[in-house]
Write a protein that binds this DNA or RNA. Structure first.
Lengths: 195, 195
DNA sequence: ATTATAAATGAATTCAAATTCATTTATAGA
DNA sequence: TCTATAAATGAATTTGAATTCATTTATAAT
């Protein structure tokens, strides 16, 4: 009996991420993905039920990575809330610096994925947000943060800002170094604009 | 000869905005838009060349409104940079509070629109960003802002955070009042999280 | 070397929705 | 009242890509 050569599932996911990043999910063609992965259209369907599932899988592993790292971070002792916020920024930047296409897909398609039936993506997002809120609440208790900061509002703002600016960086990585982008964002979250 | 009744062009744009907001551009059906606007599919094509143009028109007037107001704001004398930042937040919130569906479309479809051929949307976005950078540069000169803040990074972050959080508010307007959301965001931009 | 079978292929099929256009409807002007 | 013509309609057409599946290919087992 014939055996599988290489890791086609991984090849397909990688190709799909790149094509979705460039074209956007809805304009991406399975034929483009197949070509980029170096196999035929039919083979894509041997490994994935359909186009939606491809996107779901990408988000599943993305969210699991983000949540895993973030969960570990919040549980780390001897880190104050400010350091934890920096840690979250690092997790997000590390994730997408390593794989810029993923940043584009995350920015462009999160809403679509959340609306797919039978997916727990709203939950993943909510978990992430709730980790953020936990950190901010901690910082408030430690009197590191302004006591009147509305947690929910702050977390939304930071999530949106972080996701968008990481994506911008992946689009123009030459404009500012990753180091500058990353530290710039940490400063704004900590100190805002005012002197 | 027969004359046009009402303002069908406006009805179609309004309906399209609502349907695009709920379904996302690519899953939205012209038939849904026609039904919501109270006219037939063919009539949509009497007023708009195709589906893409419908989205383009929505963004065109949205951007023009945002840029118009922002332009006026930066030119207002006797406002310091911090007040101008607050003004931008107000402009964005006013725009979308008045028409929440527009906020969803802006969040979900900006990237798609930017990639449409023959559109100046990259330019609109760049103009908006450059207004932001101008304000931040001003604040730096007035010694209101941290001198080491990277303008480009800060503006990206703020744009993304603002757009996302306004959209979140439109999704769950009951969770926090508009007033709380708006002032919370102003505080974070000004002062960050730290005491 | 032959066989059985899993893996892979890609042309053919299916499907859904965008777009068109022949037909109908309403009204301004004669 | 009767055109002439613009406006509106929606069934029919077109389009384009997702998905299928009959066929081919490779290899493990005998």
């Amino acid at each position: 009996m014939r055996r599988k050569e290489g890791n086609k599932e991984a090849d397909i996911l990688k190709a799909a991420t790149e094509v979705f990043a460039r074209e956007g999910f809805h304009l991406a063609k399975i034929s483009q993905i197949a070509e980029k992965a170096g196999l035929s259209v039919g083979t894509v369907y041997l490994y994935f039920e359909n186009k939606d599932h491809l996107l779901q899988r990408i988000f599943e592993s993305l969210w699991e990575g983000l949540l895993d790292h973030s969960q570990k971070l919040v549980e780390t002792p001897n880190l104050n809330a400010l350091e934890k916020i920096d840690g979250i920024v690092d997790i997000v930047f590390d994730t997408f610096a390593e794989n810029p296409s993923l940043g584009a897909v995350f920015q462009k398609e999160m809403h679509h994925v959340s609306n797919l039936k039978h997916t727990p993506f709203r939950t993943y997002f909510e978990q992430f947000i709730s980790i953020g809120e936990k950190i901010l609440a901690e910082g408030r208790e430690q009197s590191l943060f302004h006591p009147e900061t509305n947690l929910h509002v702050a977390v939304s703002f930071i999530f949106g800002g972080l996701r968008f600016s990481v994506h911008q960086w992946t689009l123009h990585p030459e404009a500012e170094s990753l180091v500058i982008f990353r530290s710039g964002i940490k400063k704004i979250i900590r100190n805002g604009l005012s002197v």
